[in-house]
Amino acid sequence: MVNRVFRAALLSMAACGLALAAHAQTPAPTPAPAATPAPAAQAAPAPADADPVVARVNGEAVHRSDVQRMVAQLPPQVQQMPLEMIYPAVIEQLVNSKLVAEAGYKANLAGTPEVKDEIKRAEERAVQRAYIQKEVQSRITPAKLDEAYQAFLKQNPAQEEVKAAHILVEKEDEAKAIIAQLKKGGDFAKLAKEKSKDPVAAEQGGDLGYFTKDTMVEPFADAAFAMKKGEVSKEPVKTQFGWHIIKVEDKRTQPQPSLDEVKPQLEQQLSKDIVTNVVDDLRKVAKVETFQLDGSPMPKEEAAPAPKAEEPKKN
């Protein structure tokens, strides 16, 4: 199965590479700036030994970074495979691509209008990404991050958590009999292992760990959060799963995440907002004209009719 997926992915990549000439005849629309900044466009070159040559095609070097870029374009399930397994097929495809490109240069296609147009559009996309990245990096300041973090804490207040155990049975009479045993000194964990219909919790003596109120079904959550630490339910609690006997072992306030824990999430949201603001600011000072697909003027929007004044009511 994996080999079939990988072969299909490589064939698709090869087809895309060989279809570039046809694609260039129909210029692609320039995409909107990416919401999340791309890696630096002008990163410092890595040391030579950090990016070794893995092949040469008529003297032109193919580097390990070329392999990594191609692998990054493959489907996720293929990317998860060990590189050693897919490397032979990837290097073969890179060699084929180099040979096709070399043939195109020898045919003097690099100077054709179609290729020049495609190169210009690729350059434009790279400049877009670099500009967005520059703006994002300059605007996400420590003060902005702290402001976003404080807003996050307000929107996600600390919640109360309960640590509880339960015994689940099918019938109310069974549950009441277990409660009676517990009142006589029965061991809750032992009874949970012997009688509970919840196999996962039963293995842990009925323990459910800590949970917030919204993570449990309503009747169970209402009962557990109304109980005190150390208390066992005096009456069985019915849910769609059966009848529960609940023991509350602890209560606490859920700790809120630190800035470092939510920093990637906050940076992503700030980046999206910054991109929107950058584009909005650029449009405010730009002269933008749009036309219909055939190049004709856009139809003018008709103004909404003014509301009619109400006639006075007759007595």
Rank of each mutant, 00 (worst) to 15 (best):
Q137W: 02
S138V: 06
I140H: 05
T141I: 09
A143E: 15
L145W: 13
D146S: 10
E147M: 10
A148K: 13
A148M: 06
Q150N: 13
A151T: 07
F152C: 00
L153F: 10
L153W: 05
K154F: 05
Q155E: 03
Q155V: 00
Q155W: 00
Q155D: 01
Q155G: 12
Q155P: 02
P157M: 04
P157D: 07
P157K: 02
A158P: 00
Q159S: 06
E160C: 05
E160Y: 02
E160R: 08
E161Q: 15
V162S: 01
A164R: 08
A164E: 14
A165H: 14
A165R: 08
H166T: 04
H166V: 06
L168G: 04
L168V: 06
L168P: 12
V169K: 08
E170T: 12
E170G: 04
E170A: 11
K171P: 10
K171I: 04
D173F: 05
D173W: 03
D173G: 05
E174Y: 10
A175S: 05
A175H: 06
A175Q: 08
A175F: 07
K176L: 07
A177M: 03
I178E: 00
I179A: 09
I179R: 14
A180F: 07
Q181Y: 08
Q181W: 05
L182G: 08
K183W: 03
K183Q: 13
G185S: 13
G185L: 13
G186F: 12
D187M: 07
F188Q: 01
A189I: 06
A189M: 01
A189C: 00
K190W: 11
K190Y: 08
A192L: 03
E194F: 04
S196V: 11
K197G: 07
D198P: 02
P199W: 01
P199K: 01
P199M: 04
V200N: 01
A201V: 07
A201E: 03
E203G: 06
Q204K: 15
Q204T: 05
Q204N: 08
G205K: 03
G205F: 15
G206C: 10
D207I: 04
L208S: 02
L208P: 00
G209E: 04
G209S: 08
G209T: 04
G209V: 04
G209M: 09
F211A: 14
F211Q: 03
K213L: 02
V217G: 09
V217N: 12
P219V: 12
F220Q: 03
A221P: 14
A221R: 07
D222Y: 06
D222I: 13
F225A: 07
F225R: 00
F225S: 14
A226D: 06
M227Q: 11
M227T: 09
K228L: 08
K228Y: 04
G230C: 11
E231M: 14
E231L: 13
V232R: 10
S233Q: 02
K238L: 11
T239D: 12
T239E: 11
Q240Y: 06
Q240T: 11
Q240I: 13
G242T: 00
W243C: 07
W243N: 03
